[in-house]
Design a protein around this nucleic acid. Sequence first.
RNA 1: GGCCCCAUCGUCUAGAGGCCUAGGACACUACCCUCUCAAGGUAGAGACACGGGUUCGAAUCCCGUUGGGGCUGCCA
Length: 472
Amino acid sequence: MNSSLKVRFAPSPTGYFHVGGARTALYNWLVARKAGGKFVLRIEDTDETRNAEEWVEGIISALSWLGIVWDEGPYRQTQRSEFYQKAVDRLIDEGKAYWCDCTREQIDQRAKERGGPPGYDGFCRDKNRSRTDKTALRFKIPRPGVTVVHDKIRGDVVFDHDNLDDFIIVKSNGSPLFVLANVVDDIEMKITYVIRAEEHLPTTPKAILLFHALGAKDLPLFAHLPVLVNAKRQKLSKRRDRVAVEDYREMGYLAPAMVNYLALLGWSPGGDREFLTLQEMIELFDIEDVNHSPAFFDEQKMQHFNGVYIRQLDLDSFVSHCLPFLEKHDWWAGSGKQLQLFRQIAPMVQERVSLLTEAAEMVAFFFRPVEIPSDLVDSVLRKGESAAQILKDLSGIYAHLKRFTHGELNEVTRAYCDTIGMPLRKVQAPIRVALTGSKIGPPLFESIELLGKEVTLFRLAAARELIGTTQP
RNA sequence: GGCCCCAUCGUCUAGAGGCCUAGGACACUACCCUCUCAAGGUAGAGACACGGGUUCGAAUCCCGUUGGGGCUGCCA
C-alpha cells in the first residue's frame, strides 16, 4: 500500500468521450485503488475555442456510468489561472522563458531558407522582447542537454535537447498551454504518477524540464500506455471513428462488460483468464505488465463479452436493464400488463441477445401489430403450397385448443407435423413469420402462449388473407 | 524530413532462454444439440515480420532491415 500515491485523469472536453480515454481512466483508477491512493479528475479546458460544457458533462456521466469514481475534482484548468500566472512570473523572473512575436509564417519561412528541419529556431530567445498582445511566451530549453524519461512501461527514453524546440507555454491571449498547465497542476496537486496515452511521450521531456524549472523536488513517475487504433491501425479519433462511450451505452452495453473488455486492451492478467470482476482487476493489475504495442478496439469481441455479462444477470436485473431500451419505442406504454408479459418472455430473450437494444427488438411483435416484410411473404408464406395449408390447418387446430399453453401448442403442432409428414422446423417457419413478422425470435410455442389465442388467430387469419388477396 | 515508440494466428493476447509440436479468447469453418435464432459442446484452419549475431539451446537477449504508429500547433 502506498497511500500517498496520487494519479490523475486529465481529459480535454473537445468532443465525445471515447473509449481510449475510458481505458486510460480505468488504468489510472486501478492503480489508485490497488495502492490505496487517490484518483483525481482534472478537466483540461485551457483551449477555450475548442471546449464545450456538454463535453464536460459527457465525460462525467460516462465515467460515472462505468463506475470509475474520482476522489478529487473535477478540477477545471480555466478556474486555476492564478497558479499558472504565478508559474509564468517565476519563469520570466528567472530568465527561463521569453516573449516571442514570430508568426507561424515567419518561422516556416526561415526554416525553408535554412533548408533544415521545420520548427522554431529560437529567433527571439535572446532578443529580450517585452510583452504585447502579439507575443507568446516560450520556454527556454537548456542547451546543450539531454533529458531521460524513466517510463514504467517502456524503460528509459532519451531525448536530446537539440531536438526540442523552445515551445510556447502562454498564448498571446494570455492563456496557458497544455504542457504548462499540466505541469503546474501536477505539482500543485501533488500528483505522484502520470499515466497517460503514448501520444504524450514526445512532450514528456518538455514537461520534465518544466518541473525542474519550477523547482519541483520530486518528479512524478511516468507510464505511457499504447494507443488504441482503428481497423486501419490509426490512432482512434473522435472525428473519424465511432467510439463514443455514450454510443455504446445507448447500444445496450453493460458497463461491467465494457470495463472488462477495455481492461484487456493492452493488459492481461496472465494465462487464459479473461473475465474479471473489478475487485479482481484491482488485485491483479500492474502497470508494468501493460503491453507496448497499439491495440485494435474490436467491437465484435466486446459484444461477445456483453452477451456473456447479459446472460449472467438474474431475471430482475435483466428486466430492469432492458426497461430504458423498451421505453425508447412508441409501442411500449410501460403498463403493468406489458411489464408482466415482458418478464415472462425475458428469460428466453436473455440468452439470445448480446445487446440490450436487441432485446427490445426481439419482443416488439408482442406489443405492436405485425408487419411482414415482403421478402418474407415471398420466401416463406408463398413458398410452395404447403405454407398456406399449414396456416389454414393450424388456425383450425389452435382455435379448438382448450388450454392455450406452450405445452399443448407444442403437442398439437407436433401431432400435426406427423400427420402431414413434415418436420416441425419446416412447419414452424410460416407460423412464426405470420405471428412475429420474422424468421427468428424467441421459442415459438412460448411466444404463442403469451400472445394469446385471440391475437394468434387474428394474425394467422391476417397472414392467410395477405397471401390470398395479393396472389393472383 | 527529423525525433520517439512498437512488432506472436485476421483481432485481443499467454509466453520472463529449454515447460512451445507456441496456449486461450473473438471472428471463421464443420459437426453435435435443437421448433427458428442464439446459447452450449466437439473438431478444424490460422502466428513468433526478415536478416545477422550471443548461447549447448532463442518467440524470449543484442544489432540491423523492413513494416506500422505517434509527435513535430499560440490542440490536448
